Amino acid sequence: MSPRTVVRRAPGKLFVAGEYAVVDPGNPAILVAVDRYITVTVSEPDAPGVVLSSDLLASPAHCRWRDGELTGSAPQDTRQLGEGLAHVAASVEIVNRLLAERGLPAPELCLSVSSGLHENGTKFGLGSSGAVTVATVAAVAAYCGLDLSYEDRYRLAMLATAGLEPKASGGDLAASTWGGWITYQAPDRAAVLDLARAAGVEKALREPWPGFAVRRLPQPEGLALQVGWTGNPASTATLVSGPDRGAWRDTAGYRTFVETSNDFVRAAADALERGDRDTLLHQIRRARQELACLDDAVGLGIFTPRLAALCDAAEAVGGAAKPSGAGGGDCGIALLDAGAAQDIAHVQKRWTTAGVRPLPIRPAMEGNEE
């Protein structure tokens, strides 16, 4: 490998508890990083400019710098930057803003993305956008000689993401950055974008972010994380920003949902830290019930028949299960007795019968790494 080649990877994620409420600053969620990865390789380009490519796309995008932003060299390159490579381009641009503030030139590079969070181009719902953002920030920063802490990388990734998806909580970014089991609270994204615009990216890396917090948690004792994929990709942005959610946020029902979510997330985090398996399972079942109540109240379509069957199968053997993330498809998670191999096999058989594919996924205890 050339000394001017840098490789970084970031794991995907699953939400354990706290979906929907975490979108608002300061509300906690629990996530776990998983051992499926996005890998980003950065090397010297054959010609001046920036070349971005992905194994999910048929052709690379050839770009050049203009006023601190990447622009396509041809119409098809511009389309790629606005679609399949949007998160990659935003990540390269945010690192360039930091370089510019430090008096360093815009980088010229060749960047390629390889995804283990898709199958035949279909996403599993494991946070591919977040993982590619974190891996790209880390790889480009390292290529340019920047020494960034975990929090620096998260903050740059959050700034890049918030510019594209203002409602994104950034929980996937935190899980991909720190790895393992974490509790996370989203910052006020409008405030941090305003800070970066007014005072610069460097200042935004150093100032407190309203609402933001992240803390590592221990793994659950005596429980096995099982993951089932429904085969139906879901759009988190569409579900989180559903047509009825804006009005519902102004109701007493929404405030009750948030209070209840915060209660069971904090109780689940406390149970993880105390090694209290029974309480953890109880709180995950509460999380399922509250998501079902939310679904009934707002009609978001969180629970599909396959996700309901996934949950029922796990609870039938004494476990706990729920949709992971926005629901509507993608993955569900279950926590089952790690010593009950027969129960785990029985649940997986019931999942398969219901059209849910068990995925051989385990927690990734390390986050963004080489």
Rank of each mutant, 00 (worst) to 15 (best):
R206P: 00
S128W: 07
G18I: 03
G26M: 12
Q219N: 02
A247W: 00
G211H: 10
A204F: 05
E83I: 01
V265L: 10
R286L: 14
V42H: 05
R8W: 13
V240A: 12
K123P: 06
A160M: 02
V192M: 15
L109K: 06
A340Y: 01
I94A: 01
R288M: 08
W209G: 02
V88P: 03
L31I: 06
G72D: 13
T230K: 13
P45R: 07
A338F: 05
E370G: 14
E119G: 06
L109M: 14
R4F: 11
A326G: 12
R102D: 11
V192D: 10
G242S: 12
A90P: 03
A58P: 13
T236P: 04
V50G: 02
W248A: 14
G328W: 06
A247L: 10
R206C: 11
L310I: 08
Q76D: 15
H346C: 03
I94R: 11
L173R: 04
V50H: 01
V92F: 01
P25D: 10
A106F: 01
P358S: 14
G253W: 02
L359Y: 09
V347F: 04
E69I: 01
G275A: 04
P243D: 15
R215Y: 00
A321R: 12
S115D: 06
R362N: 12
H346T: 10
E207P: 00
T236F: 05
A135V: 03
A17R: 03
R79M: 11
Y37L: 14
S53H: 04
